[in-house]
Amino acid sequence: MIRLQQLVIGYRKGRAQQRLSTALDFSASPGEMVAIVGPNGVGKSTLLRTIVRQQTALAGNIELRHTRWDRFSQKAFARICSFVPTGQPPASQFTVYEAVAMARYPYTGWGGKLKKEDGQAVEEALRAVHLAGMRNRLLGELSDGERQRTLIARAIAQNTPLILLDEPTAFLDIPNRYEVLQMMRKISEEQDKLFIFSSHDLEFILEMADKIWLLYPDSAHEGSPEELLRDQALDPLFRNTDIRYDLQKGLHIPLRKRYKTPVSLSGDIAEIPWLEKALRRAGYPISSSEGALRVEVQKNKYILQIKNDPPREFISIYSLILYLKNKLPDAGNA
């Protein structure tokens, strides 16, 4: 479907070129979700804009359906590839239906009158993103998630095999991020469309993307999320941070400081892991043998025993940790 061949992206300033990438050799097939991942400023948006011809490549070629992508006429290209730029559309006083119907631009005459198949394409797109009931709402009245779904519906109504989105999940809360990506995934599977999008939502991408195009200032990698994780290709993303990926835990932050007094836990099996997680964050290692610090976990109750002092009762994990921090500020040095 799409093949990037020795593609170099960047900007031209007069005769000077500012290269943003090494020569890229990426590919993707119909029915896939491809995420463009990389640190800020590495050129994710530039790559998308280069593919959709909003910007010229410095070198190299993109093959779309076995044809050079710059050979298509504007109109023919608009029937192969649709683009959802980042940010919100500036004009808010359009209804959802009007906004989605605009995507039929490449198919209608100069009057823009919708023919029967145009109307059908708009209806199908609205149904695919579950917005059929909101067709007469104004864009300005939508929530961020609904607006993003409208923009995706618009890309679907353009009826292109390739859909590119620049940060479709930016500004969305977690349920909406998930819903938008899930919707894209479903549509790509059902309609055999290829979605290529940039995103910073690694947790979701590692689960939901079929392929990652990974960009660094001086190298580039592509592959399934698992391969890239296994080969530690994603590690530079976390440079200077403690974030690691673990098959069981997913993305997590391993603890650095383990110098405080160990705590031993007993009691309610279901509650213990929650307390354990909080204690680890506060820097208390968990010990299996009983030591100076013991906590007995009961239902909604935490009983703390420090050495042989009388036991204290806490009703929340937070208050227990707060007490420990104040009571034993330098317990680790002991």
Binding site: Q54, A78, F83, P90, A99, Y105, P106
Partner: peptide, 12 residues
């Protein structure tokens, strides 16, 4: 009104 980037991507 939807922005020039979008207009261009529709083939305008």
């Amino acid at each position: 009104l939807q922005g020039e980037d979008y207009a261009r991507s529709l083939g305008m």
